[in-house]
Amino acid sequence: MINDRKVAIIGCGFVGSSSAFALMQSGIFSEMVLIDVDRNRAEGEALDISHGVPFASPMKIYAGDYSDLGDAAMVVVTAGAAQKPGETRLDLVNKNVAIFKSIIPQIRESGFSGVLLIVSNPVDVLTYAAVQMSGLPEAKVIGSGTVLDTARLRYMLGEHVDVDPRDVHAYVMGEHGDSELVAWSSATVAGVPLSEFCELHGHYQHREAEARIAEDVKNSAYTIIEKKHATYYGVAMAVRRICTAVMRDEDCVLPVSSLMVGEYGLSDLCISMPTIVGRNGVVARVPVSINDDEEKELQKSAAALKAIIEKVDFNA
């Protein structure tokens, strides 16, 4: 039986531990198990985060193993290797798929039947791997996708037009990576088309501004890594947001990565597009209106992912 108040995090590196900290503060769960190949690391993180519980909501936080996953409502996977200098993208994919071959079957064997959230990179390929290996219904396997990219976009657009970023409605779609695209043609601020709202604030060079902001969004992680060697707070907040949407059955729209079944002519790959997210994961994907140029970019992004997927052995 699923315990709706229980979450598990696999991988206690910067992203996993930051996500655990964010979830402790959220009040969504009352039990959290941390799993890591380094048991001492998991125990240390559990102790450290637990000491903040008196300032938040009651929560049991402990280091565990895969046998603790059977009744979890959600499992968040952040484990994986980082790309090293001189390493190709395919090298990284193969390395992390190999790690998933040891992780995902153990999740399956635990009897877990909740929602599986993949955060490890490259997230679209690894979400696809989790779909293939987990035995879970495809709707229950989602990737963090471009949720953080979209938050970065909204933040930058809010700065650009001096408005609360929560009133900016625009999405980053496609691969979480270099081939991602912004659906500019459907972007609005409080229901006003973005270009019109920009002109109200004296901004008329739309193409130049869009190109600059899209590039800044895409390169955000590189910029942060250059300055502090890793990114983890932003993605931890994205994990918290997705978990909240699932556990509160919000049916809200988030650009998570999930298995395509014909949308925009795409199938047999995981990619990010605006998706209604509820208690059982994917409720439905939202066919956001995009123009011809954006459609071409989306197809190009999908082709880049397909080219990787076709070179990888996903058999667990």
Rank of each mutant, 00 (worst) to 15 (best):
L90P: 00
V15K: 01
D38N: 15
A82D: 06
N315G: 12
T231Q: 07
E294R: 02
S30P: 00
I213E: 13
S134L: 08
E250V: 01
K140E: 04
M1N: 06
S134E: 03
K60C: 07
K311V: 07
A56N: 13
V253K: 09
V123R: 01
L181R: 02
V119G: 08
P274H: 05
D162F: 08
G111T: 12
V277T: 05
P287R: 10
S17A: 15
E180Q: 15
G174N: 06
P255D: 07
Y204D: 01
R207N: 14
V33L: 06
P274N: 09
A42R: 01
K300M: 10
A151Q: 07
V256D: 07
L34M: 14
S30H: 11
A20K: 14
R207W: 00
I142H: 06
R166I: 13
D268T: 11
F197L: 12
A187T: 03
S267F: 11
A304M: 06
P85H: 04
A236Q: 04
F100Q: 02
L266A: 08
V119C: 10
E31G: 03
M32C: 10
F55P: 00
I142Q: 09
P58I: 04
M237L: 15
R285Y: 13
K228H: 12
K84L: 14
Y222E: 09
D149S: 08
V119K: 06
D48T: 12
E208C: 05
E215D: 10
R207L: 13
I242M: 15
G44W: 02
I276A: 06
A139L: 04
A211D: 10
A8L: 07
V37Y: 05
D91T: 10
K300G: 08
M24D: 01
A307H: 09
I118N: 04
G114Y: 09
F197Q: 05
C243L: 10
V312A: 06
R39K: 14
L194V: 02
V147G: 02
E87P: 09
E45K: 15
L117C: 10
S258L: 04
A238Y: 00
Q299R: 08
S50G: 06
R207C: 08
E199D: 06
G52L: 15
S17I: 04
F112Q: 05
D48V: 09
G111D: 10
G86M: 10
I49A: 04
T88V: 11
P165Q: 07
P165M: 12
Y171L: 03
M24H: 07
I28G: 03
